[in-house]
Amino acid sequence: MTEEPRLSAQDLIERLAPALSRRTRIGAVATLLAGVAGAVFMVTLWWSEPGPLPDRTQVAFAVLTVFCVAWAGYGGWLLTRRVVLFATDQVIAAWIGLAASLATTAVVTMTAVQRGTGVGLPLAVGGLFVAVALALAVRAHARQAALLRRLRELTDREEQ
């Protein structure tokens, strides 16, 4: 059985690099967050516009919102299908998501206040995003803690 694989371990690692690249991971998280935050912001502006809007403006708001949703969808697809987020990456991504949710909530609430529309809906939607981001952060920390616990157990066992 003298035949051997043509690809060395180093070749394989290099070919896997795009899926493991830090830049791709950061890009995917940023795309998702920017898309979601943009969509929320556009909807807030659209909803809080005083008086009836001309048809063209309505279409412009709709197009921009769809554009942001499409970017959010692309970011989500990257994160679930293309990019690898290990436990530590998930913790970092969850905290970035939480910060982005809080910032988006603050911006849309301030916009609603400035325009004199009610703050109930922006706060409710922002609160939902913050709650989801918080839940993801808690889950990511729990997963990381479980892995660190297992790592200590296995290391202790190997040292004995």
């Binding site: 290990f86 436990a87 530590t88 990456d89 990381q144 892995l147 660190l148 297992r150 790592l151 296995l154 290391t155 190997e158």
Partner: peptide, 13 residues
């Protein structure tokens, strides 16, 4: 080093 230990370390990143 066992496979399990390597996998856990890899899962941590």
């Amino acid at each position: 080093m066992t496979d399990e230990l390597l996998v856990v370390r890899a899962q941590l990143g």
